[in-house]
Amino acid sequence: MVELLEDHGLVAGARAPQPGDSYSRLQQRRERQALYQLKRRHEEGAGRKRKVLRVQDDQDGWG
């Protein structure tokens, strides 16, 4: 019974994945790829022209 609990990480003596194992490296790689894609999409959209509100003189008594 204790072995089953240890296998599922429910007991203090259970082995947790180490930061250098292949699973965590794969997770980190996927996160980096996702961030790179977000950055690329953002940079592609940066070329769009922004809308600017312009103030016109003599409208509504201002100016």
Results as ranks from 00 to 15, higher is better:
R29H: 06
H42G: 06
R40L: 07
D57R: 12
R48N: 03
G13E: 02
L4R: 15
L4D: 05
A14H: 01
K49R: 13
D7I: 12
V11N: 02
G47H: 01
E6K: 10
E3V: 15
V55G: 14
M1H: 08
R32A: 07
Q37D: 07
R50K: 15
R25K: 09
V52W: 05
Q27W: 09
R48H: 04
S22H: 09
G13R: 03
L5D: 07
G13H: 02
G47E: 00
V55W: 14
V52M: 08
L10W: 02
A12Y: 01
G9A: 06
E44L: 11
G9V: 05
V55K: 15
V11A: 11
P17C: 01
K39W: 00
A46D: 02
Q56V: 15
L38E: 08
M1L: 15
K49H: 02
D21W: 01
D7H: 05
E3R: 13
D21G: 13
D7W: 01
L4Q: 13
A34I: 05
S24F: 07
Y36V: 11
S22A: 12
K39H: 03
K51G: 15
H8E: 13
E6M: 15
W62Y: 12
V55I: 13
D21R: 06
E3Q: 14
Q33L: 10
H42D: 06
G45Y: 00
R48A: 08
W62G: 11
G63M: 06
L26E: 09
Y23E: 08
R30H: 02
L5P: 00
R30L: 04
A12I: 04
V55Y: 14
E44V: 03
S24V: 07
Y36A: 15
R54P: 06
